[in-house]
């Protein structure tokens, strides 16, 4: 099937197999390997991207379902070498270790802050429920997101 998708501001048209996931499309066809596959069953959140401004787990969206949509992946967050405030906050507060869950965490954080620009610790933790991190114990991820909120609001 033919799909047209805007990814990180660039429009792409591709012929794709109906069974491939959006993750697969991003990684294998667009070479955007920043979106990771941690479970392929929407359990871990490593594949989170935003689709029309809303965080989605790209492993459980078919590429054909994304036809006509506007996708942002981790590669679309920084402005050249200037990191997005969420990315900068993750670095400042050691919100990542191995880095594998990080793209999903950053994209989920963007969604949390879009809907709630000044979340409490509890609200951040609740918002991260669908994203697993095995390295950080979430401590510094929570700190990073709350710090990013401050930066964005200031």
């Amino acid at each position: 099937m033919k799909i047209t998708v805007k990814v990180n501001g660039v429009a792409y048209t591709h012929e794709v197999e109906p069974r491939i996931s959006l993750t697969h499309y991003l990684r294998e066809i667009l070479d955007l390997t920043g979106t990771h596959i941690g479970c392929d069953t929407s359990g871990c959140g490593a594949c989170t991207v935003t689709m029309d401004g809303k965080a989605v787990k790209s492993c459980t969206i078919l590429a054909v379902q994304a036809d006509g949509s506007d996708i942002t992946t981790i590669e679309g967050m920084a402005n050249g070498n200037e990191m997005h405030p969420i990315q900068a906050a993750f670095k400042e507060h050691h919100g990542l270790q191995c880095g594998f869950c990080t793209p999903g965490m950053v994209m989920t954080a963007a969604d949390i802050l879009k809907n709630n620009p000044n979340p409490t610790e509890e609200e951040v933790r609740h918002g991260l429920e669908g994203n697993f991190c095995r390295c950080t114990g979430y401590h510094n991820i929570v700190k990073s997101i709350r710090h990013a909120a401050e930066q964005i609001n200031s």
């Binding site: 070479d31 390997t33 979106t35 920084a78 990191m83 400042e92 050691h94 990542l96 880095g99």
Partner: peptide, 22 residues
């Protein structure tokens, strides 16, 4: 508490994990 050098590539989705290699 020096900030990590590794972070830029991971935060930009530019890490090089084995499955990323073609």
């Amino acid at each position: 508490s020096v900030k990590r050098r590794e972070d830029a590539r991971f935060l930009k989705g530019a890490g090089k994990y084995t499955d990323d290699i073609k």
